[in-house]
Design a protein around this nucleic acid. Structure first.
Length: 591
DNA sequence: AATCTATGGTACC
DNA sequence: TGGTACCCCTAGAT
């Protein structure tokens, strides 16, 4: 896909737009809007007083980048003072100098001159403590700075399904055994299952009325059974083959009562974890409760307050010790719990409001540890192999790794400044371990602030070595201009699936693309292999929603996909495909 | 084309 | 405890 980059500054506006996948389509206009609008919207929404008429300085070659600054009568829309302005100049954002750094939050400099911008690891100096444990810890921090793991650094989008969802993607989950299947949830309560190797093959279900927050697969069964948690307060088992679902837990059985229901009484489920060995599903809600559910009986076993009046963002079971569960919460902490010490009866903070139960301080009975943070904690995950390390994503723009064996809760083993401020209208950023890394150092996370890539403001996906604090790679594609908060490394393959806006993208290493492409095509029973570096695209329009549950499983293999692309009108809804494109395709001139 | 707003959000005053 | 600002967002509606 990188070969579709803006190669020529003389390209006109249409060519500069990254809508390469619809050159021969009557839907070009709409599809153009997908990519074009996103860049322009960033400018259009700079609400400066001079905003509308201040775009005359943009060079024609960057036609779609508008200027937010005017030369005369500058008034900063951030601080309101005159004499300067803030906003994009081309693809580079200029900060308001009167505000603290957007990246590290420290006053005195702007994001562009932030010392952490290109040295993100300097936030955690080596420990000066003495003693054996401290020495071991110091070695962990500083003694292995060279990258141990050979990791793919060159990635490209290998396949993408555009507009799969009707709203932004909120979560991703790989099928536990079928390498080619990935599930995604969206803000409207949909769950999509996508075969990234066949690109066009997907099903979309809608088990929820509100945001699907998490999808996790359940052990046993036929391998297609998963569970989903949603902001509608409902936890379901969900069969991703048939779309059948069974309600396991409903926090709002009365439904929304106008005039009576409010955000204090309405419960939403945000965290979700499955403890395989215990056959236990744990869901967290917006009030700070953990709900323990037996998926076999679909009954709640108990509920316990662990974060008082604070949303639980993620729950994770320790892969090595099934008794340990970690939660990340809006109360600025991540907490560790021991399931062996679960109270025998439900615990509540407000007995009158929540039914009978014993009122306790949050989690006091079975809490082992707290890790304090500078802001709310978006995610806390155990390292996937040993469970020894804990990775937290915090809204103070820091990624932290805590050693759960040697470290106390006072300071992390590693702290890295990284831009992932939670923002409204975005899915929360959650740093993910790469489960393939035996050293448990590699993590990936999308980036909030943009970087200038040849005139394009792109938001890369960062691959970080948390052992050294160094950035290993930054994944970008000129066609992917939206922020990518949801990223998931494949547990077995060199593959990353990203959810950005309504679309999913499959990244694969550039150098391995050819070989793997062959094997995948063969495995699919498909015919010819693709040239190196080619990407497959499918664009589903929003109107597909009505018949989106209809099966399109008649198509297998490459030939069928091409047929679907060529016979657009007969394809299930409007399916556009584009394959084998090595350079920017010829564009229709609009003007 | 430009503007509005649904969404369902936090932190600070 | 209400009210509102927030600093680089998104997509659909008007």
């Amino acid at each position: 896909m990188a070969r579709w980059a803006l190669s020529n500054a003389q390209q006109d506006e249409e060519e500069s737009s990254s809508s390469s996948e619809e050159e021969e389509s009557e839907d070009e206009e709409e599809a153009n809007a997908h990519t074009n609008a996103e860049v322009e919207d960033q400018e259009a929404e700079q609400p400066g007083p001079s905003g509308a008429d201040a775009e005359t300085d943009a060079p024609a070659a960057k036609g779609k980048i508008k200027m937010s600054l005017s030369k005369t009568g500058q008034t900063c829309h951030v601080c309101g003072k005159k004499g300067h302005n803030a906003g994009f100049i081309g693809s580079v954002y200029m900060d308001c100098p009167n505000r603290p750094c957007f990246l590290c939050k420290i006053p005195g400099h702007t994001t562009n001159s932030c010392p952490y911008r290109f040295a993100p690891d300097q936030a955690a100096p080596p420990s000066n403590a003495v003693g054996m444990l401290a020495s071991v810890r110091g070695r962990e921090q500083t003694g292995r700075v060279e990258p141990v793991v050979q990791w793919q650094r060159d990635w490209q989008v290998d396949a993408a399904v555009l507009r799969l969802h009707s709203r932004r993607c909120t979560c991703l989950e790989f099928h536990p055994t079928q390498d080619k299947l990935v599930l995604s949830g969206d803000k409207k309560g949909q769950v999509a299952i996508w075969d990234w190797s066949k690109v066009y093959e997907r099903h979309v279900y809608k088990p929820h009325k509100a945001l699907t927050n998490n999808i996790r697969f359940l052990p046993g069964g036929d391998g297609m059974s998963c569970c989903t948690s949603s902001s509608d307060g409902i936890l379901k088992t969900f069969d991703c083959e048939t779309g059948m679902d069974i309600e396991m837990l409903n926090l709002n059985p009365e439904g929304w009562i106008p005039g009576e229901s409010n955000e204090k009484t309405w419960g939403m489920l945000y965290g979700l974890a499955v403890c395989d060995s215990r056959n236990l599903v744990i869901a967290g809600d917006t009030h700070g409760y953990l709900h323990f559910v037996d998926p076999r009986t679909s009954r709640r076993l108990c509920q316990h307050l662990v974060h008082k009046r604070s949303k639980i963002n993620t729950i994770d079971c320790n892969p090595a010790d099934a008794n340990l569960v970690v939660t990340a919460s809006n109360d600025w902490t991540a907490r560790l719990f021991d399931l062996r010490c679960l109270p025998s009866s439900d615990t509540h903070a407000l007995p009158s409001a929540r039914g009978k139960g014993k009122e306790v301080e949050p989690g006091q009975a079975f809490e082992l540890m707290q890790w304090p943070h500078g802001r709310l904690v978006n995610a806390a995950y155990f390292s996937p192999l040993t469970g020894r390390k804990l990775l937290t994503t915090c809204a103070d723009n820091r990624l932290r790794v805590w050693d759960t064996w040697l470290g106390g809760s006072d300071e992390p083993t590693r702290s890295v400044v990284h831009s992932h401020d939670f923002n409204r209208y975005l899915s929360p950023f959650r740093a993910e371990w790469d489960p393939k890394d035996p050293h448990e150092r590699l993590v990936m996370i999308g980036r909030y602030i943009s970087e200038d890539y040849g005139g394009l403001a792109l938001h890369p996906i960062d691959l970080m070595d948390m052992g050294s604090g160094q950035q290993l790679a930054a994944l970008t594609d000129p066609n992917l201009t939206t922020i990518t908060p949801v990223n998931k490394p494949h547990p077995r393959l060199d593959l990353i699936i990203s959810g950005s806006s309504r679309s999913l993208y499959a990244w694969r290493p550039t150098r391995e693309t050819e070989a793997e492409e062959m094997s995948v095509r063969k495995a699919n029973g498909g015919g010819s292999s693709l040239p190196v570096g080619s990407a497959d695209f499918v664009c589903f329009n929003h109107e597909d929603e009505a018949d989106v549950n209809d099966s399109d499983d008649e198509g297998t293999g490459k030939k069928k996909k091409r047929a679907a692309g060529n016979a657009k009108t007969s394809a299930n809804a409007k399916t556009l495909t584009k394959t084998n494109t090595k350079q920017p395709p010829a564009k229709k001139k609009k003007k």
